[in-house]
Design a protein around this nucleic acid. Sequence first.
DNA 1: GCTTGATCTCCAGTCGACTCGAACTCCTAC
DNA 2: GTAGGAGTTCGAGTCGACTGGAGATCAAGC
Lengths: 137, 137
Amino acid sequence: MHLSIGEVAARTGLSVHTLRFYEQEGVLLDGVSRDSAGRRRYTENDVDWLDVCVILRASGMPLPELRRYTEFAREGAGNEAERVELLRSHQRRVAEQMRQLRQCMDLINHKVAVYEDILDGTADEACHAPATGTAAP
Amino acid sequence: MHLSIGEVAARTGLSVHTLRFYEQEGVLLDGVSRDSAGRRRYTENDVDWLDVCVILRASGMPLPELRRYTEFAREGAGNEAERVELLRSHQRRVAEQMRQLRQCMDLINHKVAVYEDILDGTADEACHAPATGTAAP
DNA sequence: GCTTGATCTCCAGTCGACTCGAACTCCTAC
DNA sequence: GTAGGAGTTCGAGTCGACTGGAGATCAAGC
């Protein structure tokens, strides 16, 4: 039923340090309850939420924004419009990142093709490639 | 023919601070030449190379790796295998980032759909959505 | 001749997101 | 009963990549 901080760390991929830090930063839905010895007891719901947090963080959502989203979720129904707005704004960021990554992939593919051409074609005959255009597309 | 640091900043989108910083970090192909007053004079080649750097940095290549790549380029022909290896390793990183971004996009699309269902269907009748599953997929 | 604006060097500060360490408290197993 | 391991708090430290500011120099335009 309840999970220790170590178990949650193992399941979410976050460190115990980070779990405590996230709690303090307000990115957990409810105050984490404690056992008789003062140790944190997480629920399955916490783990589900943290999985969402991990995905949003990995895509570059800053902690303050994640906190805001968590606050909306904590408030419960009635603020769906705000949640959509927040998610759509992050979506734009993610789309822009994808664009940049695709651009980088194109660059890499092109450069690798050029280098492999050199390696395949003229592997043993060194030093006759033009020195110009090292930075060219 | 030659460009001032301000012009290069305008063209690459980097700040003049960052341009000096990059030079010091060794991510420029050759030592930047100076005019009689000691001011940096960049070439078109520098700008081309910096454009490559911007793309690689935006896709998460760390500066030390960018420096290594720059060193290979500076050395000239003969190290194509190493360049390919470096680029392929970055390519794996980029592919992993794309996977994470797609995962985030799926999450956002799903959540936005759920919220818009609520907004469309039951906009005026509040408080009858089940409180469970806030973190559910 | 004087101001303005761009540049220079150098060093320190910032920012976000952790990450670490010290000193302590528990529970469990041997 | 004691050693080990997992947990606690708190404040400080780290890391990467810039970013800012002080103080000097120089060229151009009025």
